[in-house]
C-alpha cells in the first residue's frame, strides 16, 4: 500500500516538473536583461575585464562574448555572436579607426635617426587615412642633465618633428605639441644616464 502511494506521489511530482520547467524557462526568457554589458576582445587581440555593480550585486566579466545585466543581479553568461551583432550593429558600424602610435628616435640633440626620419611619410599617410585626424607630438629625453635642460630639449624635439610633418604635407585637423622632459622614460634608468631609447618623440595619430 505504501509503495503504491509512493509511486503515485512520484508520478505527480514528475507531471508537475514536466509542466513547471518550461514555464520557468518562459519566465526567465521574459526576464532577459534589457540593460546589459557584453565583453569583447580588444582590437589588439587581448581581452581585459569589466566589473558591473548595481543594486543586485557585483559581477566580473573576463571572457569575450559573455554578458551580464547592469544591475549585477546574475552572473555572466554567453551571448551568441549573431545576437551581439544584431543588437549592436549601429554602434559597431560607427566605431572609428583605432588610434596608432609612432616612436621616433634621435642621434642626439634634435637630429632624427635615419630610420626614424623615414617614418615621417608613414605618419602623414596614416593621418590622411582618417577623418579629421588629430595628432599629439610628445617630446622625451634621457636623464642626462637637469629637468630644465631636458624640458627645453624635449620641446625642441617635438617641434622639430611637428615641423617636419607640416613641411612634408601633413593634412590634419589639429596637432598638439607636448613635452615630458625626463619624467616619462621608456626605459627606466637612474638619473644622469645616457639611454638612446629614451631620446624620442611619440606621435599619436587619432
Amino acid at each position: 500500500m505504501r509503495i503504491v502511494n509512493a509511486g503515485a506521489a512520484t508520478r505527480n511530482i514528475s507531471i508537475v516538473r514536466f509542466l513547471l520547467v518550461p514555464l520557468f524557462l518562459l519566465i526567465l526568457a521574459g526576464c532577459a536583461p534589457k540593460s546589459y554589458v557584453v565583453l569583447l576582445q580588444s582590437p589588439d587581440g587581448t581581452t581585459g575585464q569589466v566589473v558591473v555593480s548595481g543594486s543586485g550585486g557585483t559581477q566580473t566579466l573576463a571572457t569575450a562574448g559573455q554578458r551580464a545585466p547592469l544591475d549585477g543581479s546574475t552572473p555572466a553568461s554567453p551571448m551568441k555572436t549573431e545576437d551581439i551583432m544584431a543588437e549592436f550593429a549601429q554602434a559597431i558600424a560607427a566605431r572609428p579607426k583605432i588610434p596608432t602610435q609612432f616612436l621616433l628616435y634621435f642621434t642626439g640633440g634634435v637630429t632624427l635617426t635615419k630610420e626614424s626620419a623615414a617614418l615621417i611619410p608613414a605618419i602623414i599617410a596614416e593621418a590622411a587615412s582618417r577623418p579629421a585626424a588629430d595628432l599629439s607630438v610628445i617630446g622625451h629625453t634621457d636623464t642626462l642633465k637637469s629637468d630644465e635642460y631636458n624640458d627645453q630639449l624635449a620641446l625642441q624635439r617635438a617641434k622639430k618633428v611637428a615641423e617636419s610633418l607640416s613641411a612634408k604635407g601633413l593634412k590634419a585637423l589639429t596637432m598638439t605639441i607636448e613635452w615630458h622632459g625626463k619624467r616619462n622614460l621608456l626605459v627606466q634608468t637612474p638619473d644622469n644616464t645616457f639611454e638612446p631609447k629614451n631620446r624620442r618623440v611619440e606621435v599619436s595619430v587619432r
Binding site: K34, Y36, S42, G48, Q49, V50, S53, P69, E87
Partner: peptide, 19 residues
C-alpha cells in the same frame, strides 16, 4: 555609470545597452 549600475573597465573592449 548607467542608471542600473556602474561599469569598471580594465583594458578591454565592451558593448553596453541601456533601455
Amino acid at each position: 555609470a548607467t542608471p542600473k549600475g556602474n561599469i569598471g573597465v580594465r583594458g578591454t573592449q565592451f558593448l553596453v545597452v541601456v533601455e
